[in-house]
Design a protein around this nucleic acid. Structure first.
Length: 135
DNA sequence: CTTCTAACA
DNA sequence: TGTTAGAA
């Protein structure tokens, strides 16, 4: 449990994180606006990222590189615990509720794709094809 | 010099 | 997402 403390210690400023993650300051701040990360702040309002924040950003980057949008990333990062049947999806500025696989199932698939770049025998979970999971 | 917010020829 | 202005 002492390791967790160190993992969550706010240590580096955005400049270091940019190099560590190869993400632009704009992107890092943008992801924070969408609550994908919650870096600490100094008394001067400057962001201080923890080791966990950096790892989180690397995961986000991996998903972005695979074409997953913000809504999709939120599904992977904050998977809903219960087996809900609906999910809120953002499509071209419109928010709609659609039936989808249980979140736990989608989570396993997205995580699997993130780790092993493959899936049992399915379609891709990228932007345009994410719709294939709805019916 | 680095980072922050807000805004868009 | 990039970029920029103005402030801290």
């Amino acid at each position: 449990m002492a390791d967790e403390i160190r993992r969550n210690m706010a240590l580096f400023p955005i400049g270091i994180v940019m190099k560590l993650t190869d993400l632009s300051a704009r992107q890092i701040r943008y992801y924070e606006q969408h609550n994908l990360i919650v870096p600490a702040r100094t008394s001067g309002n400057q962001r201080l990222f923890s080791f966990n924040d950096v790892e989180r950003l690397l995961e986000i980057k991996a998903l972005i590189d695979k074409g997953v949008n913000i809504a999709g990333i939120k599904q992977v990062m904050n998977p809903m615990t219960k087996e809900s049947t609906e999910a809120t999806v953002i499509t071209h500025d419109t928010e709609e509720k659609r039936k989808v696989l249980t979140d736990s199932q989608l989570y396993r698939m997205l995580k699997q794709q993130l780790v092993t770049g493959k899936r049992p025998g399915q379609v891709s979970l990228i932007q345009g094809e994410l719709s294939r999971f709805f019916k």
